[in-house]
Amino acid sequence: MIPSIELETKGLPNWCPGCGNYGILTALKQALSELDIPQKDIVLTSGIGCSSKIPHWVRVYAYNGLHGRALPLAEGIRLANNKLTVITCGGDGDGYAEGTAHFIHFSRYNMNIKYFVHDNQVYGLTKGQVSPTSDEGFVTKTTPFGSVEKALNPLIMALSAGATFAARGYAGNVSQLKELMKKAIMHKGSALLDILQPCVTFNHKNTYEWYSKRVYELETPLKTRNEAISKAAEWGEKIPVGVFFDSDEETYEDKLPQLKEKSLIEEEPKTDIKQLLKELK
């Protein structure tokens, strides 16, 4: 339990009034305050975008890095100290365009990192360009005649790359989103939580109304990875929300003998090179 007042920072969010990011911030703060993790052991990394500013408004350790590169930061942090709870936040452009390679490999590594993507299907911070998750035909400043590209499905990508947890949430349903965040955080391994996030300023298609009409809750996770992938393909008139897949597998960190007893940070460095020099004699 962290008293919610402890999670406050000095500033107030400067997102547009009505932005879906407010719901995500509220859910995140509630989730962190309800979980039993010491505040000092929580780290948030983020990239660049409206979404990536979230560390400024929740008081935990944070590293606000480069556009698309928040996951590698998180990986270095986890390997340095595997006692930490490491969460990465960012936008759909950040994670599914600029940082695609990192997203795929993060899923495959199965490191214990939680990836929350504020998916507004548009580029917010740069003022309204098409994104990899924009629906085909979506009109933006860079696609004035409608996007000719197919939308990318992040859940399918994560699942087919090996992520051990994949879920979708909706910024318009804070209590449900909070529960999904808690599940993701408690999961052991790489977890993707793609969050449908209305951008009231630059996405006039995928609005609160549009999402609210379509989302429905998945009762339980699907049993197999393949079933989860098939379910994740559902997008259109109906959009499933909830945990698609949750499997307990050995993590990257579990497999490293160096981390069996202590984390790297807790251990004194082993700097004696006598033996190594002897091998060169």
Binding site: V43, Y63, E75, G76, R78, A80
Partner: peptide
Amino acid sequence: ISAINSCLGASYAG
């Protein structure tokens, strides 16, 4: 890109 960013992450964690 990942290599150097993860090094920065490790450095951040101490």
